[in-house]
């Protein structure tokens, strides 16, 4: 039985918009709203959502860079919420973060080796010999030779930058790694190599990943479980297989539908969601998705749906799940092609 490593209990993160002189008070932006999630030891949990859905804020909240305004986070059995800002990051040392653009996450004036060394120094490794050894080990682990120490960040290719980003935090011996869009901006041909490295590193170092992405096709081949976010809330969560073969929430279905497929001439048949995601500062009432949902009725704008168990391990937040299931059973073409 794998144990729970991180548990989020009803975590919300709210921003107060900065008020300008003589301006009316603005309502707070609820970037992350009552998110409950568990992260099992050794698993890869994907968090999927479009830009502005709050997945990055969720990551920063888990890291302790952003203070949760409600709920609590339990890390390996210890409550790490409610600490003063300067301690909360320290208490979560076991969690490390790889930036979306690891090249930009390196000081452009510093050689890669110096940046890696600094990360370890900041991480509390005082002995320079020990640091040098760890850097060598980590560069080796991500498949780069020691010569990369003397490179500057701009001299690295996209794939190499990701590798350095991974090496940087691996030296700190984290248990949980949050990967923020680890493949965005990479060619498909390079993506696969980076993803494989990420998976290999998990096995080698016994890591647990929180994998943030907007791209379901990436997550499909990586993750054990997947959580779908829309406007700060989790709308569906389940095992990768459940999400891909039997998506229940209409938003999940739309996301699956929208992924570009290797099937020429199908564009006309695919239904696109109407409109754009609403501004997080002006969330629709009730179910936030109702403004774009093809199945929405008037109750959807009134009732805020809670996550409900639809089968073991899979939960979805929608009040019309049963109706949608019936409708898609009658007209299977409404379902994403992959789930038919």
């Amino acid at each position: 039985m794998p144990k729970v490593l991180v548990e989020l209990q009803d975590v919300s993160t709210t921003f107060k918009p900065r008020r300008k002189l003589f301006q009316d008070k603005l309502p707070p932006i609820r970037a992350v709203e009552r998110v409950s999630l568990t992260l099992m030891e050794g698993e890869i949990l994907g968090v999927i959502g479009e830009s502005g859905c709050g997945k990055s804020t969720l990551a920063r909240t888990i890291l302790g860079l952003q203070t949760e305004t409600a709920g609590q986070i339990v890390l390996d059995g210890n409550i790490v919420s409610g600490l003063p800002a300067r301690h909360s990051r320290k208490a979560r040392r076991d969690i490390q973060y790889v930036h979306q653009d690891p090249g930009a996450a390196l000081d452009p004036w510093w050689r890669v080796g110096a940046s890696l060394d600094e990360s370890l120094k900041v991480g509390g490794v005082a002995d320079p010999v020990e640091r040098a050894e760890r850097i060598d080990r980590m560069l080796n682990a991500v498949g780069l030779n020691a010569g990369f120490r003397s490179r500057y960040p701009h001299e690295l290719s996209g794939g190499q930058q990701r590798r350095i980003g991974l090496a940087r935090i691996l030296g700190l011996h984290p248990r949980i790694v949050i990967l923020d869009e680890p493949t965005s901006g990479l060619d498909l041909s390079v993506q696969a190599t980076v993803l494989r490295l990420i998976r290999d590193l998990r096995n080698q170092f016994g890591l647990t990943y929180l994998f943030i992405s907007h791209d379901l096709s990436v997550v499909k081949r990586m993750c054990d479980r997947i959580a779908i976010m829309y406007l700060g809330r989790i709308v569906e969560v389940g095992s990768a297989e459940q999400i891909f073969t039997n998506p229940r929430h209409p938003y999940t279905q739309a996301l699956l539908n929208a992924a570009p497929r290797l099937r020429p001439g199908q564009l006309e048949e695919i239904e696109a969601l109407a409109g754009d995601p609403p501004n997080p500062a002006r969330k629709p009432s009730g179910c936030a998705f109702h403004t774009r949902c093809p199945y929405a009725d008037e109750r959807c704008s009134q009732i805020e749906p809670e996550l409900r168990e639809v089968r073991t391990g899979q939960q979805a937040a929608c009040i019309r799940l049963e109706a949608i299931a019936q409708q898609t059973a009658r007209t299977p073409e409404l379902l994403p092609e992959i789930a038919r």
């Binding site: 498909l188 041909s189 390079v190 993506q191 696969a192 190599t193 990436v218 081949r221 290797l262 099937r263």
Partner: peptide, 16 residues
């Protein structure tokens, strides 16, 4: 190889 990299073609992580 390019086409094989596409997630639709394989569940394996194949790169070039």
């Amino acid at each position: 190889m390019l086409i094989r990299c596409h997630p639709d073609r394989s569940d394996e992580l194949i790169g070039i």
